[in-house]
Computed example of a mutant assay.
Amino acid sequence: MNTPELETERLRLRRFTAEDAAAILAIFGDVEANTFLPWFPLKSLEEARQLFERQYQPVYRAERGYQYAICLKEDDIPIGYVKVDLDESHDLGYGLRHEFWHRGIAAEAARALVEQVRRDGLPYLTATHDVNNPNSGAVMKKLGMVYQYSYEEQWQPKDIPVLFRLYQMDLDGNSGRPYLQYWEQSRVHMVEQGI
Rank of each mutant, 00 (worst) to 15 (best):
T126G: 04
E88F: 09
T126K: 05
T126A: 01
H102I: 10
R165G: 02
F28D: 04
F52W: 09
V84S: 08
A23F: 00
Y66T: 05
R103Y: 08
Y151P: 00
A107V: 10
Q148R: 15
D87M: 14
D172K: 14
F100K: 05
V82N: 02
R103K: 15
G144M: 06
N132E: 12
N132M: 07
S175P: 02
Y149F: 11
R54S: 05
S150P: 02
A21C: 07
P161T: 05
R49T: 00
M1P: 03
G93V: 14
L6N: 07
K141L: 13
A48C: 02
F164N: 07
L86M: 10
V84I: 15
N132D: 04
Y179P: 09
L42C: 06
P161R: 04
I105H: 03
Q148V: 13
I195V: 15
W101V: 10
A127Y: 02
Q168Y: 02
L6D: 04
P41A: 08
K158H: 04
K43M: 08
A69D: 02
M145S: 05
L180E: 11
T126Q: 01
H90A: 06
A23S: 11
Q168L: 12
H90S: 11
T8S: 09
R97M: 04
Y182C: 03
E47S: 08
R49M: 00
H129C: 07
Y68I: 07
N135V: 12
R103N: 08
R15W: 00
W155M: 09
Y147N: 11
N132C: 00
G137Y: 06
Q185N: 09
D30C: 10
L163T: 11
L96F: 11
I160W: 00
F164R: 13
F52R: 09
L13I: 10
L92D: 00
G29F: 09
N135A: 15
E32H: 13
A110T: 05
D87I: 09
E108N: 01
M190L: 13
A106Q: 07
P38T: 13
F52V: 08
E74M: 10
T3H: 05
F36L: 09
N132R: 15
Q154R: 11
N174L: 10
R165T: 00
E19N: 12
L125D: 01
M145K: 09
R103S: 01
A18Y: 07
L113M: 04
A23P: 01
P161F: 01
E46S: 12
V84T: 12
L13E: 02
N174K: 15
L92M: 12
G65V: 14
L163I: 14
Y94C: 04
P161L: 03
S175W: 05
R14H: 00
W101M: 03
E74I: 14
M140S: 02
Q156R: 15
Q156D: 04
A26L: 06
P161C: 02
D85H: 13
E53D: 07
V131D: 06
Y167L: 06
